[in-house]
């Protein structure tokens, strides 16, 4: 099968691969790049375990072809921690926003998109914002609190440093 050469910038590093046209982005991330924080939980674009940011927008990477992401930016859970944990990661830790941890990376990436576009969401907006991600362990309540934690922290660090 003929393969295409693609380069996707993942978490700031260019990743090049020779891929089949049909290769799903999630498999490129997991298998070709060994970034296994992005998970697969379904085959019908429902669960959101594979959520990543594509050019800053949260998408289900099981429903994007790797070739479609050629030349674009992808952010995964592995890129969230800088010098410190991202406030969302911290929020999930502090508010017990996870149990088995399988949906967590996708949940965090979805929440990142939500907060990027709506820094101070209401509980209802958070629930809607993460409704493309299924969690079977937490009942979502502590995930909502985790996102609120991050929202507050991002707001206060902005107002502290934000001139």
């Amino acid at each position: 099968m003929e393969k295409k050469s693609i380069t996707i910038n993942i978490n700031g590093s260019p990743r090049t691969g020779e891929v089949e046209d049909r290769l799903l982005l999630v498999h490129f991330i997991r298998d070709d790049c060994a970034l296994t924080g992005t998970h697969i939980g379904c085959d019908s674009t429902h669960c959101g375990a594979c959520t990543v940011l594509l050019d800053g927008t949260a998408v289900k990477s099981c429903t994007v072809l790797a070739v479609q992401a050629d030349g674009r930016e992808v952010a995964t859970i592995e890129g969230m921690e800088g010098e410190a944990l991202h406030p969302l990661q911290e929020g999930f830790f502090e508010e017990h926003g996870l149990q088995c941890g399988f949906c967590t990376p996708g949940m965090i990436m979805s929440a990142k998109h939500l907060l990027d576009n709506n820094p101070k969401p209401s509980e209802e907006e958070i629930r809607c914002g993460i409704s493309g991600n299924l969690c079977r362990c937490t009942g979502y309540q502590n995930i909502v609190k985790s996102v609120q934690y991050a929202s507050n922290k991002l707001q206060s660090s902005e107002s502290a440093g934000g001139k």
Binding site: R30, A34, L35, T36, G37, T38, H39, I40, T76, I77, E78, M80, E81, L85, Q89, E90, F92, F93, E94, H96, L98, G101, F102, T104, P105, I108
Partner: peptide, 21 residues
Amino acid sequence: VKRKEDARFIRGQGTYVDDVV
């Protein structure tokens, strides 16, 4: 107390079976 296992899960560093190569 906060969970010890979360340190890896919030970083996407859990090892689930499909991560085993």
